[in-house]
Design a protein around this nucleic acid. Structure first.
Length: 273
DNA sequence: ACTATGCCCTGGGTGC
DNA sequence: TGCACCCAGGGCATAG
C-alpha cells in the first residue's frame, strides 16, 4: 500500500527521469478502463500524447504531473499500484494496466493488481482530491490543527488519522505506527486525546513518515519504487502486521483487531486509552 | 454534522 | 490435488 513515504519515494525517483520528457504515447490496456476517471480511456490517451512533463509533485498519496499545456495529470496508486520507469523493450509486468512511452526511448509502466488506481486530467490538482487536507509533512499540518480535528469526536483516534482531510498521506501502516510511537491505543475516542497527547501524536506521525521515507518506504506486498525496487521500512515497523510478536518497548504481545473497518495492530501493554 | 457500512477488484491464503 | 470461500484496503457514496 503506497502511503506518503512510498509515493514520495516514487516522486523523487521519477522526477529526474521524466521532467522535460515529451510523452510520445499512452496506452491504457483492455480491462483497465476504470483507471481513466475524468475522460474516456481513448480521449485521455489522446489528450496526454505530445505533452511534455514540466514537474512531478505530490500531495498526500497523490502524484501530480504538471504538463506543458498547464493541465495536471493526477495519479493515485491506491493499494496495489506502482509506477515504474523501464526501457521500452522491457517485458510487461503480469499486472501492467497502462504504459507511457517517452521521447527518450524509456517508458513508465502502471502496474496495479486490484485495478483501484486512478488517473485524473484536470486544470487544478484539487479537482482530483476535493477532500484532501494539509499534506502530513507540510508546515500546514500542525499540532494545533490535529488537536482541533480530534476535539469533541467520539470516533477512534485512528479513524481521524486515516481521514485525508486531517493529514493527507497517512494510511493504515503509518496510522498504526504513529499510535504506537505516541503510546496511544488506536481505539481511544478522539475527543479524549488532550493537547499534550495530541502534540505527541503529531510528532509521532511526522516521525514514522520521515523514518520510512529515509528507508524508501515499506514493501509489505506490492509496493515498488519508481525503479522497480523495494523499500526497507517494513523490516523496521513496531506493530503493523506484527501480531503475536513481542512489543519492542514493553515486551507485551502485539494484537490485531479491527478499527474503523481496518486491520489494526497495537500493543496492549504500552498503548493507553 | 457525525458515524458506520458497502462498494470496487483480484491474488493469495485457508479450510475442507 | 481441487475447490469454495474469505481477506486485504483508499476513497467515495450512501444510509442512519
Amino acid at each position: 500500500m503506497p502511503e506518503l513515504p512510498e509515493v514520495e519515494t516514487i516522486r523523487r525517483d521519477l522526477e529526474p527521469l521524466i521532467v522535460g520528457r515529451r510523452i510520445q504515447g499512452v496506452r491504457i490496456h483492455p480491462g483497465a478502463e476504470r483507471l481513466a476517471v475524468t475522460d474516456a480511456p481513448r480521449a485521455l490517451e489522446r489528450a496526454l500524447a505530445g505533452r511534455t512533463v514540466e514537474a512531478v509533485g505530490r500531495h498526500g498519496k497523490y502524484l501530480t504531473l504538471r504538463l506543458d499545456d498547464g493541465r495536471w495529470w493526477v495519479m493515485h496508486l491506491r493499494m496495489t499500484g506502482s509506477l515504474v520507469h523501464l526501457p521500452a523493450d522491457a517485458p510487461p509486468h503480469r499486472f501492467e494496466r497502462a504504459r507511457i512511452d517517452l521521447d527518450d526511448g524509456t517508458t513508465l509502466r502502471f502496474n496495479d493488481l486490484r485495478k483501484f488506481g486512478t488517473w485524473h486530467l484536470v486544470d487544478d490538482p484539487v479537482e482530483a482530491m476535493p477532500n484532501a487536507g494539509p499534506d502530513a509533512l507540510s508546515d500546514e499540518f500542525t499540532p494545533r490543527w490535529l488537536r482541533e480535528r480530534l476535539r469533541g469526536r467520539e470516533t477512534p483516534v485512528k479513524a481521524v488519522l486515516l481521514d485525508q482531510s486531517v493529514a493527507a498521506g497517512v494510511g493504515n501502516i503509518y496510522a498504526d505506527e504513529a499510535c504506537w510511537i505516541a503510546g496511544i491505543d488506536p481505539r481511544t475516542p478522539a475527543g479524549r486525546i488532550g493537547p499534550t497527547r495530541a502534540a505527541r501524536l503529531h510528532a509521532a506521525v511526522r516521525e514514522t513518515l520521515e523514518e520510512s521515507l529515509g528507508d524508501r518506504g515499506s514493501s509489505f506486498s506490492d509496493y515498488r519504487d519508481g525503479l522497480g525496487g523495494e523499500g526497507m521500512h517494513h523490516l523496521l515497523v513496531h506493530v503493523f502486521r506484527r501480531e503475536g510478536k513481542p512489543c519492542g518497548r514493553c515486551g507485551h504481545t502485539i494484537v490485531k483487531t479491527r478499527v474503523a473497518g481496518r486491520g489494526t495492530h497495537y500493543c496492549p501493554g504500552c498503548q493507553r486509552r
